[in-house]
C-alpha cells in the first residue's frame, strides 16, 4: 500500500493530488495517517502510532483506519503495492 509521494498536504488539511487534479480536505488524524503512509509505514505501524499519539484504543483505531483506507482507495489516493 502506498500513497502518491507528490500528494501535497497543507497544515490546514487541504490535500491536492497533482496526478488527478482532485482536492480534498482532511482532519488532524487523517493528515497524521497520510503522512505515515507517505513514509511507507504498514497498517500495523500506523495503528500503533495512532494509539501512541491519540486518545483511542486499538480496536477503534483499527476500525476507523480500515474505513479511512477504503475512502482513500475510492478517491484513488492509495494503491495496493502490486498495482
Amino acid at each position: 500500500m502506498y500513497v502518491n509521494k507528490n500528494l501535497a498536504i497543507s497544515d490546514t488539511g487541504f490535500i491536492f493530488n497533482p496526478s488527478t487534479g482532485d482536492s480534498f480536505s482532511t482532519n488532524e488524524v487523517g493528515k497524521f495517517i497520510i503522512d505515515l503512509l507517505k513514509q511507507k509505514k504498514s497498517k500495523e505501524e500506523i495503528i500503533s502510532q495512532i494509539v501512541l499519539h491519540f486518545n483511542v484504543d486499538k480496536v477503534n483505531a483499527d476500525k476507523d483506519l480500515s474505513d479511512f483506507f477504503a475512502m482513500l482507495k475510492s478517491y484513488q489516493l492509495m494503491l495496493d503495492e502490486n498495482e
Partner: peptide
C-alpha cells in the same frame, strides 16, 4: 493559483 483555491476551500 492552487493556494487561492485552498484558502477559499478551507477557510
Amino acid at each position: 493559483s492552487l493556494s487561492e483555491f485552498e484558502k477559499i476551500s478551507t477557510f
